[in-house]
Design a binder for these strands. Structure first.
Lengths: 407, 407
DNA sequence: GCCAGGATTGTGACCGGTCACATAGGGGTC
DNA sequence: GACCCCTATGTGACCGGTCACAATCCTGGC
């Protein structure tokens, strides 16, 4: 029926209705799968839909129904491997659920700029996922108005895993719970809490959002649901690995902490040192990129006592590697280096980088799943397990030199 | 006036109207900056807006007015440096123009999947930017319905720069135009063409979208506007650089071509070889990531005659570097390697990578600017110059070994 | 043969804006 | 003072869906 040469505006349900000889409401029922439509009628309507190439207008749907089937991801960065992978995971899950995903970049960490971005994201409608790995993200997460559905991807759970104050009676009570089973613990990969006192879903909360061991947890920003990877444990493992190679201690080049408190990675590193009775050197502050690692590496290269360096991410490690090379110190012969994240290029560096692999994509999927659950009570919060952080042993770390490098 | 404890639904213009004692239309006039509103009235309305915390509902705006102030970016990948940077550039420009940006990932290059993604993007409303660096993207660009405003970010202009068939009378006639001025030519960095025969802007076309030299060009996918970086020229420069160091010829590890035709990078490389009278080895097919480079590098490492390798991107170069190292061939002592893109880590590799820097962020901004111009006739298409591709000389390329490595 | 009640279908209002047009007040100008 | 035009404001319809409710049809039970 596309007789006219003009590109007509797309067909609406009323167009379909007249074409099928029914009322617009019946068309609405058909496209929404309402049960009480006579099969013959449904047929006619579907035929008309097909013929006119009708597609339901997402904007009108959002306006009329309130549900917008959209997520906006707020992030400070889109180019770094970890961030980009999380975004990819979110998009993947969102696509599967027929949600559209928007992004908003937090270019500055200044309060007004962040607030403006949050506002913009809120205007878009739908849910919010905030990647809060850095000050801008943390601030954004804090600036989200209480009534907005939001999930945070955070670096550190509010209360570090420890003794469990599990209180099943009160799902709003912040509580973390970690259980171990020998060498390879089963981490609680993510879990969340329905925001306390949401208006529309007064008491449907709870079980659906619990991990399968029934534990719940609350985040740093006012009882919002969030997801995280167990960076503390990962750093702990990596440090232990380096120590087990025989190093006296392990130096640490830190990524900028998202909060004033110490990052989970730092905590894990510190814990491993303490358990081994190793001296704890001051962490060197890095940035996110290789330039920061390079600067840090230069300083560390000057100290001949340094034989092992753990870096907050693979980019930092790359910079450290380079600085060591420039200083003429061989890796892993004289100094061992380990990274964090297992970025795609790390395996191909020379020397290839020992690092801890984190499943960012899975983390993104988990974040979306959680948000999806908050947005639609109907949505199943299938436990989307995020894989355990995994130590990847490569060339950049080895035993320390036979005798102290001190001349 | 936030007396009730309830989180009320946000104020609408009618709420503001009654609060200010005017009609909703007057409120509409105020928020749209309509001139004929009495200053005192405007004051009252603005006060009411402020007091109620009114924010204009983007969804309703889109539905009522048709303009949605949104862009959707369709891309096959979000984690690779180039793609991510383009996305970042788009977001930056979009944010400045108060547009929201959505993303859609083309996970598969299969026709139905691609078509579905394009549909989804179309449903969102607003404009489209398709990153067509790969088969999935190219296919997506082709699948965009004619009536949808779209800009492609493409690898190769349809007709390679050459003799200019400039025909100012017919802006729809595909035509490219390149001019040179000595050693550092002023490339036409991007330019575009208003889609032919758009319904709503019959003859406002033309000048605004022209580059400042007045040239216009049409893309590979049916006279759609697009942007690109001059990869051909960049590859040409890089190859010339390697040849100027004394290499007999330069081998090439190619990124997958987005189309059946030869990529611009390949063309530039070939052209430089031809001009220098150097033999033209068969390009080695790589993939996008370091793994592909590694595989290609292994093969090239076997041939002792290979002394210079140009790679389609920095990730490939990384893999090649690694393969050469594994084969015991020193870089740049025995073999020189050059990359493409200047990814952030390339400067910190050992050896640091000679490469060609491309301004992906600028490219993204240009893409948005172009789309913005198509979407709103009012928008200025300020010539957003994308910087010229720039050869970055580092450690990985040097003169060939004194005598042929042949034993 | 009449009515309850479920299955089907239709009607009107509404979501929160915009657009096109109508309407009421002022100055001029002649 | 009639006429006109411009300024300032209001009214009703509309964008394309959904929701709440009413109306109609059909069937079975008594």
């Amino acid at each position: 029926m596309n007789v006219t040469g003009h590109t007509r505006r797309p067909a609406s349900i009323r167009d379909v209705a007249t074409a099928a000889g029914v009322s617009y409401q019946t068309v609405s029922r058909v496209i929404n799968g309402h049960p009480s439509v006579k099969p013959s009628t449904r047929e006619r309507v579907l035929a008309a839909i097909d013929e006119l190439g009708f597609r339901r207008n997402a904007t009108a749907l959002a306006l009329a129904s309130g549900r917008s089937r959209a997520v906006t991801v707020l992030t400070a960065n889109t180019t770094h491997y970890g961030y980009a992978s999380i975004l990819q995971g979110i998009e993947e899950a969102a696509r599967a659920a027929a949600y559209s995903v928007g992004i908003g970049v937090l270019e500055s960490a200044e309060e007004p700029a962040v607030a403006a971005e949050v506002q913009r994201a809120a205007d878009t409608g739908g849910g919010l996922i905030v990647i809060a790995y850095d000050p801008a993200g943390v601030r954004a997460l804090g600036a989200v108005p209480a009534e907005l559905p939001v999930v945070g991807v955070v670096e550190t759970p509010a209360s570090p895993p420890g003794p469990c104050h599990h209180t099943p009676a009160c799902p709003a009570a912040p509580c973390t719970h970690s259980r171990r089973a020998g060498r390879k613990p089963e981490y609680i990969q993510y879990e969340g809490l329905r925001p306390a006192h949401r208006e529309h879903a007064p008491d449907a909360a709870g079980p659906a959002l619990r991990a399968d061991d029934g534990s719940v947890a609350a985040g740093p920003s006012g009882d919002r649901p969030w997801v995280w990877t167990d960076d503390r444990e990962a750093a702990y493992e990596a440090t232990r690995h380096l120590l087990s190679l025989g190093h006296e201690t392990v130096h640490y080049v830190a990524i900028p902490s998202s909060t004033r408190r110490t990052s989970a990675r730092t905590t894990g590193w510190r814990q491993a040192l303490k358990e081994a009775g190793a001296p704890e050197p001051r962490p060197v502050q890095g940035s996110w990129g290789p330039a920061g690692g390079h600067a840090a590496g230069r300083r560390l290269a000057e100290d001949p006592a340094v034989t092992a360096i753990l870096c907050g991410n693979d980019d930092l490690a790359l910079g450290v590697l380079r600085a060591l090379h420039e200083a003429g110190r061989s890796v892993p012969g004289e100094v061992s280096v380990a990274g964090f994240d297992d970025a795609p290029h790390s395996a191909y560096l020379t020397p290839s980088l020992t690092t801890v692999r984190l499943d960012f994509t899975g983390l993104g999927r988990a974040a979306f799943a959680l948000l999806h659950g908050v947005l639609e009570e109907s949505a199943q919060i299938a436990p989307h397990p995020v894989s355990v952080p995994e130590l990847v042993v490569r060339e950049s770390a080895g035993p320390p030199p036979a005798r102290p490098t001190r001349p």
